[in-house]
Design a protein around this nucleic acid. Sequence first.
DNA 1: CACTGGAGCCAC
DNA 2: AAACGTGGCTCCAGTG
Length: 459
Amino acid sequence: MVATPSKEALKLFQDGCLALAVLESNGICMDVERINRTIDEVGVQIEDLTGELKTDEVWKTWKRRWGDKSNLSSRSQLASILFKEMGYESKHATKTGRDKVDVDALEGIDLPFVQKWIRVEKHKKLRSTYLVGIRREVCDGLLHPSFNLHLTRTYRGSCDSPNFQNIPIRDPEIGGMIRRCFIPRPGRVLVEVDYSALEFRIASCFWSDPAMIRYASDSTLDIHRDMAAECYKMPVEQVTKKPRFYAKNGFVFPELYGSYYCNVARELWNAIESAELTTADGVDLFKHLRRAGISELGACDSHDKPVKGTFEHHICQVEKRFNEKFPTWSRKKDEWLKLYQKRGWFRTMTGFVCAGVFSRNELYNYPVQGPAFHCLLWSLIQLVKQIKKRKMQTLVVGQIHDSILADVPEEELDDYLQMVKQIMTVDVRDHWAWIVAPLGVEAEVTRTNWFEKKAVEIK
DNA sequence: CACTGGAGCCAC
DNA sequence: AAACGTGGCTCCAGTG
């Protein structure tokens, strides 16, 4: 017997298609003048930096080696110059055995040429993928990305032409240049409402681990903060934003999705240097760890047992405690795997069937990632429906996995915020009994452009 | 010239 | 034994 998706699952995607079609048709208002201006400005920056690179000694070596075929954008050529001609040591290989030439590999090379090369490449990416790529899709000042529901293995959504779901934000210089081009329509504001910690909360529901649910429910508890404290051996009060960020993305999520101490330890260790992590009192975390008796990373090789006194050994212990902290999760991981191995398929809490060959890690990720998005999609459907019913002028214009972007008339702002919060945190829980953890949202508003959005309270 | 896969980088 | 997931876009390098 072939398992089939539930009626509810099918309906969610049917209604979802219609709601997303409304978003696509509405479109996002763009500052085309600014896009054009920025394309020129970044173009000049790229030319200037390229000119500087071409006066560098390294470029002479490059020309000697590659002659007329010399191409500053070629990573394989750069690799040949650095690792063959200049004798730098290549520490990482790609899966096809070539020398890695990514930011991670290049950051260790202390050459002005290389650091400038990284900067040029970042700007080229910004210009071609985002500025030029987005301008190509703008029609009468509006951008109409395609929001898909038929392409992912997890029953998440995706987006293309352009992909509105990966606009830079982490690097403020790059993010600012592109996000300032997204603007509200005249007399309106852009409103972005996103779920707080949605994936962790949905994970707690899926595994029904009481301790995990407690973390997801009590706003005074913070798993990322607590794990930062453990990983970097500091008191909770000494954990600031940055170490918390790296604990979240370098420990908690990787561990939840099947990574382990070898990789995790390396990641957390490297973050100390690259992000210049400190305690709240400003003590460098290497120094801090040394005081606590840890002065080296360790081999981080799966064949060797971690050596006592190393960071790797410490993280191995933290991992053990993490598993003990969430005993139900630890137990159910195995049961979930066994069930799949027996049947060859599984069903998400939202009624979708995942059938096929899955790795262990995919098995941990899919049942969380899909349903988390389905909370957003269900909310989006209700939102679009209610806006129409109430004859509001608000236009929902975008969706980014756990957030909704809308173009709202100033006079509808308060109503809109109330409505969206009610749907996303209350109504969705009435609809799905499996959501046993509370949900929360955060809202940001801007009257100028998407980069300038500021947090607002929802009363 | 069209097409493909790899590598890399952007987001959640 | 093995080792975090999902996407889209661009460029290069190689193929026919």
